[in-house]
Design a protein around this nucleic acid. Sequence first.
DNA 1: ACCTGAACACCGTTCAAGT
DNA 2: ACCTGAACACCGTTCAAGT
Lengths: 198, 198
Amino acid sequence: MASPRPYHHGSLREALIESALTLIAEVGPQAFTLREVARRAKVSHNAPYRHFRDKDELLAALAAEGFERLTVYMNRSAAAGLNALDRFRFSGRGYVEFALEWPQHFQVMFDWPACMAKYPEYNAAGKAAFETLLGFVIAAQGDNGLPKGDPQPLALLAWSVVHGVAKLAVSGHLPFEAARVLEFTRYAVESMLPACSS
Amino acid sequence: MASPRPYHHGSLREALIESALTLIAEVGPQAFTLREVARRAKVSHNAPYRHFRDKDELLAALAAEGFERLTVYMNRSAAAGLNALDRFRFSGRGYVEFALEWPQHFQVMFDWPACMAKYPEYNAAGKAAFETLLGFVIAAQGDNGLPKGDPQPLALLAWSVVHGVAKLAVSGHLPFEAARVLEFTRYAVESMLPACSS
DNA sequence: ACCTGAACACCGTTCAAGT
DNA sequence: ACCTGAACACCGTTCAAGT
């Protein structure tokens, strides 16, 4: 993929994000190091500063990328649903699947709040992910699967439920193996639904 | 409180935990530093190693302490309930209140899983906190507020819901100020309950 | 423009030494 | 026992310099 160039890359930024994602998946955000990212991308330890103001800005880019991938997971899982309400339910399963597969990436997205809030890229990606969920709620409302009215509380409720399951599972506080976590997700999402039905 | 002694303390361990708790509340777990803890406790930067094997062991002690305080919050909030079902509901409010008041401490408890799992003190404290919640479920079952049967899934469901609300609120992803978060908690807990009613 | 090496002020952790 | 200072191998970040 990479063509030989003056020093190293034509697109160091992408290479750095790539290295950073695999590093973070290996060691987690605590042990994540800018210098190690540079080493893996075969550049000097401060070449990254040409593309990111500091470590936080790289982490914000990773988090934003994470929200896009999370959206893909939700959409892919939802596609298995037979109707709008079903797709809404399945999107929550996709959410938890993402967290189980990429726990460290998931952590960067949600556990670095102070550093992230100032990066518009991060905020936009988070907003887009939520709007995907909101879309499933609205579709289910149109389909009479959910009561009409403001879809936002319903979407926030669904988000809270799947986020709680995902977070507890990832931190090892649920007494289930991975497959059972998805069953439990289903149980949790359905427990929440009756309150919404018209 | 502290009496003059040979070098500094009679009870350096407690002083270190105290310093660590205020430091972590100020700067968060990312910026938390063992050397700064020592500085604040007025001891040399490696005096802590007499009481903790390494930084992780101190963090595990903080997390364990956090679970005990979380339990106090749940019990205190539940005491306002008029019956067993009500106390169960209110305990969830206490959970979220703790997270909102001590977000960084809450983060240490749940976002350092790899480091923590090996410390029995941490596991025991987490288990005790969960058993408090389980106790509220069982009491509500006895009071006919919740259906009989295995209380564990109900307790895990409740935990997931309040944990999700707490985590999203703390990371700035809920569009509410603190007071509204507690209202939303109530809404979330009640949305989950109908599925449990007999 | 993009990359480099040297430098600075910090970490966590270890170790030999003091009382 | 409990504490100390010096030391080691790391960080994130800055800066003057190379092509």
